[in-house]
Design a protein around this nucleic acid. Structure first.
Lengths: 214, 214
DNA sequence: ACACTTATTTTTGTATACATTTTATAAAAA
DNA sequence: TTTTTATAAAATGTATACAAAAATAAGTGT
């Protein structure tokens, strides 16, 4: 992995871990000292993170970690539900037992308790992605991948408070069964609910925590 | 406008104009000489354009203007149809005569024949955006805006060959009428077809030109 | 005490120079 | 001739230094 991607991932990790306080401006020199590189790669990383929504402008000079809003999570999950269902529909004809097998393996690895939050989020996406790739629709796939990457910003909250991940893995297994039996319309419906209820749960949780902060 | 955004727009213009050949690697030094700036702002602009899909990697070092594929256009328009209809639904309750009036004004300005391709594409988006903003859904709006920005890469082809823009403006006017009469479900249906037929026309055209190149 | 200017400091943006990686070239071996 | 490997050239990535812009602080008048 080149150092640019490494720095971006490092920053994402620190954002999720809460090491970088939300709302306060990040200074390029601070970051360059913290990560022991010059300001140029820091600038590159900041640009990437801005484009992906992990950082936003702070006034006219500087960026900050944005505060989380339930409205954003709601939109992200609604878009996921819409687009991922279309993507699964395109994939249906191309999904074979090998693909389902790989997806099962990834889903099984999620049961390991010694996974960091970041690894868990990434594996969860890989379960979905392994199915979506069969659709051979790179443009649609990329947009969906971008949405999932944005959802990751809320992962720090999804873990712990609502033990969503257990039920999520079980729903994945149900999805695999339906796909193997070629019960396609039911599979798409399950996926839709799978995403929508996850979204509703997250939004509800965010609303309560937002209330608490006032 | 700061120089970074200016350089990005300049490059987009040159990409649309065909000044930068597709498929051949762009060198940072060439661009820095061409636009009379150092390689640093060129690098920044390239990073932005890569994130927006206007440039893609060429091997391990360098970027190029990507070739256009009808499959990409198809996906972009299908996503637009899905997401923009949802966005319009959210907006329906908030759309008033002032908003429709502004949209009408923008649409009227499109009849001017002395518009460049870039200006035309931008105004066309502004018609849609002026309605969507009423929805007050920034996250959904941003995704839709990104999709429209990506569609712009195909605008060079949409102009001339298929005289799509005339009918597009007439459909906009129909949409305004339906919104004023609060015939909401019909308005959403019209928008869906408006986007879908534009997509189909573009895809058909791209298929024929792709055939010719072989 | 408060609004408004002006000066100072800080921060970001850009140029130049150097280091590292990648690509192209040419020589050597199969 | 083709493939492989070594070498040279070129391109990108990064650090440092400087210029422009923005934020902060100090001063001025009301």
């Amino acid at each position: 992995m080149n150092s640019h991607a490494a720095l971006v991932e490092q920053l994402k990790g620190d954002i999720l871990a809460g090491t970088l306080e939300r709302g306060v401006p990040l200074r390029q020199q601070e970051l360059s000292e913290r990560y022991q590189v010059s300001r140029i790669p820091v600038r590159d990383a900041i640009a990437t993170l801005r484009n992906q929504g992990w950082l936003v402008a702070h006034g006219k000079a500087g960026v900050m970690v944005p505060t989380l809003h339930w409205q954003e999570a709601e939109d992200l999950y609604q878009m996921r539900a819409l687009l991922e269902c279309r993507l699964l529909e395109h994939a249906l004809g191309h999904i074979n037992y090998e693909i389902i097998g790989r997806a099962r393996d990834i889903n099984a690895s999620l049961y390991s308790p010694s996974l960091t939050l970041l690894e868990r989020g990434r594996l969860n996406w890989e379960v979905h992605a392994s199915l979506y790739r069969a659709a051979q629709r790179p443009t649609l796939f990329n947009t969906v991948a971008t949405l999932n990457e944005q959802v990751r910003r809320y992962m720090g909250f999804q873990y712990g408070p609502l033990d969503y991940l257990d039920t999520s893995q079980q729903e994945h297994e149900q999805l695999f069964d339906l796909l193997e039996r070629k019960e396609w319309s039911q599979a798409v419906t399950l996926l839709q609910r799978h995403i929508e209820v996850a979204g509703v749960q997250l939004v509800e949780y965010l609303k309560t925590t937002e209330e608490l902060r006032k």
